Amino acid sequence: MMHKITDLIEPDNGCEGFAEGEEPMVTLILDDGRSVKIPDMTAYKKGWDTGAEISDEDIAEFAK
């Protein structure tokens, strides 16, 4: 099943940034009300932004 991404929330780590070795994550808000955390680089490479669609299979594979 496909789900539309209705919002994308990126963390604000302020001037400290991310800790060494920490993988930046984004939270995708889906049309069914779910929120899933995905590695930021994966979301970028896959084009998952507000208005895009994501499948249940991709959620199962990439969500953390």
Rank of each mutant, 00 (worst) to 15 (best):
G33P: 02
K45M: 11
D32P: 03
R34A: 07
D58V: 00
D40M: 15
I59G: 00
K46L: 12
D31K: 00
D31S: 05
A19Q: 13
E61C: 00
C15E: 14
W48F: 01
N13Q: 14
M25S: 06
I5C: 06
A43P: 08
D40I: 01
E23Y: 04
N13C: 07
E53Y: 12
E23L: 12
D58N: 02
K4R: 15
V36H: 02
D31N: 12
S55L: 09
D12W: 13
S55P: 09
K45R: 14
G33H: 01
V36R: 10
L8W: 03
E22W: 06
C15D: 14
A52K: 04
V36C: 06
D49S: 13
M25N: 06
G17H: 11
V26A: 12
D7V: 03
K46D: 01
A60L: 07
G17C: 07
K46S: 05
I59W: 04
I9A: 12
A63C: 00
G14M: 03
K37R: 15
E20R: 07
A43C: 05
K37S: 14
I5E: 07
G17F: 09
H3K: 10
A43N: 07
E23T: 15
C15A: 14
M41Y: 10
M41H: 14
M2D: 12
I38F: 09
P24D: 10
T50V: 10
I59R: 03
A52D: 11
E23A: 12
G51H: 11
S55H: 10
G51D: 10
L30W: 00
K46H: 06
D56Q: 13
A52W: 02
D40K: 15
E23N: 08
H3R: 15
S35P: 01
E16G: 08
